[in-house]
């Protein structure tokens, strides 16, 4: 977000990426965004047994301005969706979204009028975590996967290139209804 984005592509930028990724992944501050059942498991993740402090993220920030990870923990209702988007917009870059539980990821068992069928309709999601609710251990696994993503985040020119490549991949991907094969 600062001068590191302006670095010329090369060895310096790559080392900078490694360093920044290392620093960023060790200090992810989540926003307190508990909605439903998953929020209780998210609090258990912050509790003594699972101890989120091990990952440098024991500070659940109440203000979205100070947070860089939004753990959407629970079902997102149509009434909550605008609020959720507003909170996401208030968060400063770089920011990540973890969709915790099936309700947040796809609507889950609540396929009805009240629930947004997947929070990715509202905000971009980096990690989807299945489960109803996922155990705190599963949340830890998702966090570690997110750390992996953060570590390998590109910067500057390399990010532009990576984004372009991702877009190409997305364009080539077949739509869900064209996929064939077993339901697994």
């Amino acid at each position: 977000m600062g001068v590191e984005e302006k670095l010329p592509s090369g060895v310096l930028l790559t080392s900078m990426e490694n360093l920044l990724g290392y620093l960023r992944k060790g200090s992810v501050w989540p926003a307190t965004f508990g909605l439903a059942c998953c929020a209780i498991e998210m609090m258990a993740f912050g509790g003594p047994r699972h101890d989120s402090a091990r990952f440098g993220m024991e500070v659940f920030r109440a203000s979205p301005r100070q947070a860089d990870l939004m753990i959407v923990a629970g079902r997102v209702s149509q009434k909550m969706a605008p609020v959720l988007r507003q909170i996401y917009d208030q968060m400063a870059n770089p920011k990540w979204v973890l969709s915790m539980g099936v309700c947040a990821s796809s609507g889950g068992m609540f396929n009805n009028y009240a629930i947004v069928q997947g929070v990715d309709h509202v905000v971009p999601v980096d990690v989807y975590l299945p489960g109803c609710p996922p155990r705190p251990e599963m949340l830890i696994d998702a966090i570690l996967k997110l750390h992996d993503q953060i570590q390998h985040t590109k910067l500057g020119a390399q990010k532009v290139a990576a984004d372009a490549e991702l877009e190409q991949v997305a364009l080539r991907a077949e739509a869900t209804h064209e996929m064939k094969g077993l339901l697994r």
Partner: peptide, 11 residues
């Protein structure tokens, strides 16, 4: 209230 209305009764 209503920010977590899930429509469980209808489902």
């Amino acid at each position: 209230i209503g920010y977590l209305h899930t429509g469980i009764e209808k489902n």
